[in-house]
Design a protein around this nucleic acid. Structure first.
Lengths: 225, 225
DNA sequence: AAAATCTAAATTGTATACAAAATACATGGA
DNA sequence: TCCATGTATTTTGTATACAATTTAGATTTT
């Protein structure tokens, strides 16, 4: 009798992590709006826990850039200006290019297949117009590339950057007129990786992020009226 | 009587921040070694505070990548493998290049002067051999470039990456034979920025980080015996 | 001696208590 | 009405208490 019973005894998660994930989701979905105060007692009673795990979760959100706290005043959901968004996009541009180049070197045939499939799924969803599914397919597409970099540090930074853009990106994907461009760009990236033409892939990815950047900025400008 | 008495009433810092900075310093200086356990009660009594601010500081260190915690077992100082270091350096290479390019566009004459002065100080310290001063001058040199990017998000990521390399970088600066190369590279960067030749600056910065990368890797390999 | 089991101590997870500061609101005066 | 002041309430900061789990050591068993 070897220890085959180590099923998911790792399922234990400290409350701070549960709270952290819950609050993060709420912020990204927009349920907690930028500038909204994160009051410990209120959150604690709403989530049915004490202040201790709430406070620890807030410290984590803070470090991720999703919350901002002023000593003795408390935390609030981070506000994002257009400038902040531009800053994030500029960094993302550089790192997505790096990721594309690395993926070009490292990606296996199986992963390339997966990438193609995901791209096909993405295209299929654009036909039906299910925004949530489109967004998820897009995330998967980029995740496959990220994973192929074999660089966890890079992946975690990219995930954080993506997180910051999340709220606006969904809006971007609602606009049907972007779909053909996106599909073409995805295909360019796939072809580049398949041919292992690093410079082409970098250029394609640069373009891809850049287009998104332009759209997101326009969107913010529209909102800020 | 206008309110000129807003001196530094902001001097108040929550204990969690004091603890966070203290522990971070200790980790970067190597006083707390990779793999060393961070026990709450022990740290609390050593720093003369309760467990609460210690725990919050640990959550912050965790998010910065300086500590790793396993639920119910506790936190320890993050270990760094050679692969981890390579990963960090690869990202840093890309972002330092980006920073150099942005600085090239944005840097004022005054900042350029400051950069030259700092480079001169760096050179002077290499003559006296005060490693700590050399390191500080080098940090200042790169900080001036970072600041000139006008991109706080980029700056914070770069600071985090630098932090991860910190322990090994000091060792690197102890080796006198690196000094001439470093000085030359600094000058190339300065000249490139002065002439606003973006591509040259990027190449110079790439080279600069790359050399450091090679040295750091060699160092790790030496240690791991 | 090696392995397994039990027990005591140490350690983390969570809740709560109390102090200090910030906020909101009411009251009083110009 | 507007501003200033004072007071009550809310909220954060920190310490502590207790429960649950892990770890280490001792004891027993094979």
């Amino acid at each position: 009798m070897t220890n085959e019973l180590t099923l998911n005894m790792n399922a234990y998660l400290p409350l701070r992590d549960v709270v952290f994930h819950t609050l993060r989701e709420a912020i990204l979905k927009g349920e907690l709006k930028p500038g909204e105060r994160l009051m410990e007692l209120q959150l604690a009673s709403k989530l049915g826990v004490s202040r201790t795990p709430i406070r620890e979760a807030i410290r984590m959100l803070e470090q991720e850039g999703l919350a901002v706290t002023v000593p003795r005043k408390g935390a609030e959901v981070a506000r994002m200006t257009e400038k902040d968004m531009e800053d994030v996009l500029l960094v993302r541009e550089a790192l997505d290019e790096l990721a594309a180049a690395l993926a070009c070197e490292e990606m296996t045939k199986e992963e390339l297949e997966e990438l193609k499939n995901t791209s096909a799924e993405f295209e299929a969803y654009t036909k039906t117009g299910e925004v949530k599914c489109i967004a998820e397919a897009d995330v998967r597409f980029h995740d496959i590339i990220y994973r192929a970099t074999r660089n966890p540090k890079l992946i975690s930074i990219l995930n954080n950057l993506r997180e910051q853009l999340y709220r606006y990106r969904v809006e971007y994907l609602k606009d049907e007129k972007n779909y053909p461009t996106l599909i073409r760009e995805h295909n360019e990236i796939i072809m580049g990786i398949a041919a292992k033409e690093k410079e082409k892939v970098k250029a394609a990815m640069h373009n891809h992020v850049n287009n998104q950047a332009a759209a997101v900025k326009e969107m913010i400008r529209g909102q800020s009226v």
